[in-house]
Amino acid sequence: MFQHEAVKHLTALYNFALSLAKDEGDAADLVQETYLRALRFRHRFQPGTNLRAWMFKILRNAFIDSYWRRSREPAMEEAVSEQGSATLVEREGVEGVGSESIDRLVRMDLHEALEQVPDQFRTAILLSDVEGLSVEEIAEIMDCPPNTVKTRLFRGRRLLRGHLKDYGN
């Protein structure tokens, strides 16, 4: 039953909402709006496909919508360029970083380091690494091509490492 399945994703949706809205009240509003929309449009959900990914997409759209309503531009434009394949293969600072040094570095405050990473990168990383969603599912949620997701993940993790390293110094 749709309702029974939908409620299972409440914790994941609330945590995703928190990562977008940064405010508990706004996150709770987003989650409620997500469930209202999911219920209203449940006939559009195709059984057998991933309900969680579908609800994540609704939540992200609701988040963008709430920015529209406030006549503000969504925080879509990032200071860091996402495109350009050359950036994908930059190698500076990667050589010689072994597991041991990474261990030492990432003991720094992961939460704060994540805050330093641009929104689109952080969202992709959280959806992939915390929620375990595939590149295709994240592409659907974030409304972008799979290759863009891969770039965001790749570059986002490298940026994250950079911020964690700063904490180590």
């Binding site: 928190l18 709770a28 990667v94 939460h111 690494d129 915390v130 993790r157």
Partner: peptide, 29 residues
């Protein structure tokens, strides 16, 4: 690069805490 990506991924998976859903929100949903 693969080592770096794997490590960061593992650390994010293990290190991002799950926030509990407030009971008022759970009730509303």
């Amino acid at each position: 690069e693969l080592t770096l990506q794997r490590e960061i991924r593992r650390r994010v998976a293990a290190g991002v805490p799950r926030q509990e859903v407030p009971s008022a929100l759970r009730q509303k949903v």
